[in-house]
């Protein structure tokens, strides 16, 4: 009688297992290291430039020593404006998809459109904004062209996050509301949206971060000049943001201290985004603690 084969793990398979576990850990740690090096390098380069006068001075066009005051203002202004445009549209579309569209072809098609818009490269959106707002509407490079085009970038993100947050609202709560005789709109406004608000808010902060960092769209719609007035709330003037400024001084090269300005601007942007990230995390934690 032949002996039954012995199934024992071979030495090599154990070795491969060990090795691959190590590789997976190494890759993961590599990303952590990359991030730390990245943020560290940006902050280290920008640190010597970062001071109050850099943040509060007007930029120079030919001489060294300019600041980034109007760019900070324009960044915030454009983010706020573009969110103001995209929030109602994104919320509306998200509500429609979660609460009205039902399950079927229509919803599928809407999702396809949202996904396509979300995946559309910002340079393509920039071209669209350039044709429509800058040229056809005759608005040239201006805050309004920039805000409207930037809104196109935000809309799919807000729509998606609204839809997902609304779908997470427990059915029981909606039923309770309907059971009391609430209309659909009342149920959405008084029960579903308040419940989904934290999710939507988190998404909104992340969207703001994305809009804050966007450059390709704004180069071609809001322009590479900042108004000489401060603060300039006019929608018709060009509005160079921090990210555009960073790109422009680097690639233009007329400023003698372009390197320093770019480094300082990058550091400011990283600091803003880190604080936004921290804010989201803190809000998230606070909410989780409250609801527990």
């Amino acid at each position: 009688m032949g002996a039954a084969p012995v199934f024992r793990r071979s030495r090599s398979s154990k070795l491969v297992d060990r090795l691959m576990r190590g590789v997976l850990w190494a890759i993961a740690i590599l990303f952590v290291v990359v991030l730390i090096l990245f943020v560290g390098a940006i902050l280290k380069q920008g640190w010597p430039v970062l001071n109050l006068s850099f943040l509060t001075k007007m930029p120079e066009t030919l001489d060294a020593g300019g600041g980034i005051k109007p760019q900070i203002f324009n960044s915030i202004y454009l983010v706020v404006l573009s969110l103001g445009i995209s929030l109602p549209v994104g919320l509306g579309a998200g509500v429609y998809m979660a609460e009205y569209a039902g399950k079927g072809r229509a919803l599928n098609f809407l999702r396809l459109c949202i996904e396509t818009l979300a995946a559309t490269p910002s340079i393509v959106l920039a071209l669209f904004g350039m044709i429509v707002f800058v040229q056809a509407m005759g608005w040239s490079f201006s805050i309004r062209s920039g805000a409207l085009t930037l809104a196109l970038l935000n809309i799919p993100v807000i729509t998606r996050v609204t839809e997902v947050s609304l779908l997470a609202v427990p059915r029981e709560l909606k039923e309770a509301s309907y059971g009391l005789g609430a209309t659909k709109l009342q149920t959405i406004l008084k029960v579903a949206l308040p419940y989904a608000a934290t999710g939507i808010l988190t998404g909104l902060v992340l969207t703001a971060g994305r809009a804050f960092g966007e450059s390709a769209i704004l180069v071609f719609t809001a322009g590479t000049n900042a108004s000489a007035q401060f603060p300039d709330f006019r929608l018709t003037v060009p509005g160079e943001t921090l990210s555009v400024h960073l790109w422009y001084v680097t690639s233009d090269g007329t400023l003698p201290d372009a390197r320093e300005i770019a480094a300082g601007t990058a550091a400011v942007m990283i600091l803003v985004l880190l604080s936004l990230n921290l804010l989201v995390r803190l809000v998230d934690r606070a909410i989780r603690r409250r609801t527990r």
Partner: peptide, 30 residues
């Protein structure tokens, strides 16, 4: 209208994540 006249209590208690007062006042407020 019908649902206002025909109230319902569900299998699992489903209060809104609001105060006790606001839960009861929810309907009249509608």
């Amino acid at each position: 209208d019908l649902r206002r006249r025909v109230g319902m209590v569900f299998q699992k208690p489903n209060p809104f994540p609001k105060s006790i007062y606001e839960n009861v006042a929810f309907g009249p407020r509608l």
